[in-house]
């Protein structure tokens, strides 16, 4: 089925099999935040190290389905070493991509915000998730956890 192939792109399977930035930074000094999807039991632990307005380092731990784990792995690569405003803007762009499904479901007057897929780089591989509404929560788990970690760390 075409949609299924779009969901399970090779990049996603690759990040699931060999997740990047895997593990936990020592905390303290790093900040540690856990995220859960109570519906399916997926779990992501994000540890971040913020210094001089830059996300110096990030590690991802936890367990869950290929979508939640690969999305978090892709995220870690996309935000590591970036300034906090850039990190927050990447998060916002990714979430807009995921929410484009909900705008499609709306009554039509809310035009889905155009997402610059190029700016997302490898992350664009996750756009197939949008066709599987139940899985959007899996794809955004790591991102919501990172947002929470940044907020808690006052970054």
């Amino acid at each position: 089925m075409a949609d299924l192939e779009e969901l399970y792109r090779e990049i996603i399977l690759d990040h699931y099999r060999s997740p990047r930035n895997r593990g936990e930074l020592a905390s303290p000094p790093a900040h540690r935040t856990e995220g859960f999807n109570p519906l399916c039991g997926d779990e992501i632990v994000v540890t971040i190290d913020v210094l001089d307005g830059v996300l110096q380092d990030i590690k991802i731990a936890g367990q869950g389905c290929s979508i939640s784990q690969s999305s978090a792995s892709l995220m870690s690569g996309a935000v590591k070493g970036k300034s906090i405003p850039d990190v927050r803007s990447t998060i916002a762009t990714f979430k807009t991509l995921m929410l484009s499904h909900e705008s499609h479901l709306g009554d039509g007057d809310a035009e889905p915000e155009a997402v610059d897929l190029k700016s997302l780089g490898e992350l664009a591989a996750l756009q197939g998730v949008v066709k599987f509404p139940v899985r959007i929560k899996c794809a955004t788990l790591g991102w919501n956890t990172l947002t929470q970690a940044l907020d808690e760390a006052g970054a």
């Binding site: 089925m1 949609d3 299924l4 969901l7 399970y8 399916c40 997926d42 869950g64 389905c65 290929s66 979508i67 599987f132 899985r135 899996c138």
Partner: peptide
């Protein structure tokens, strides 16, 4: 293979 992925592929 995670249970979620199993269920997704079975759905197809």
């Amino acid at each position: 293979v995670h249970a979620h992925d199993i269920a997704q592929i079975l759905d197809s």
